[in-house]
Amino acid sequence: MVEIVGSTMHPEKQKHSFEPKIIAFVCTWCTYAGADLAGTSRMQYPANVRVLKFPCTGRIDPVFILKAFQQGADGVLVSGCHPGDCHYIAGNFHARRRFAVFRKLLEFVGVDLDRLQFSWVSAAEGGKWVEMVSDLTERVRAMGPMTEFKELALEEQWSGAIDTPELKEAYNSI
């Protein structure tokens, strides 16, 4: 549990052995404004989140999520306007399908979906933003670092695995 000591303006930070990196892809009109509200209302939430602002969730390509994991993210949050509130009318409806499908793909490839969170956070929901970020950060912290993509990046060539019986036989017959 996080124990809060000191003044409420500057609560002492709990020291953890692992600080997860969380990347948040947010739409500028709702979630970004919601996060801004959380800030101007001086609400506290984990500083683990790095916010990337997009015009709309419809602009958030699944490949960005992939790239975030590859570049060292331990968790990813994608958030935008509630259905019906998208400033481009249907961007979030399209995004909803795309992410529903992309999650299934990541799951099939072996990514633990607990590292990936989608949410609708409006400009008035500063509190919900704090909750989303805090929940994801703590969940990912408990899971430990995301090692899968990082390990891949460190691996060099495929040549180690290229020792199938057929290839060996072909090699020996040369």
Partner: peptide, 16 residues
Amino acid sequence: GPLTSYEEKDDQSFIK
């Protein structure tokens, strides 16, 4: 196609 269209009632149980 399914990823170039949508319905308002599409599943969003995975979105908080």
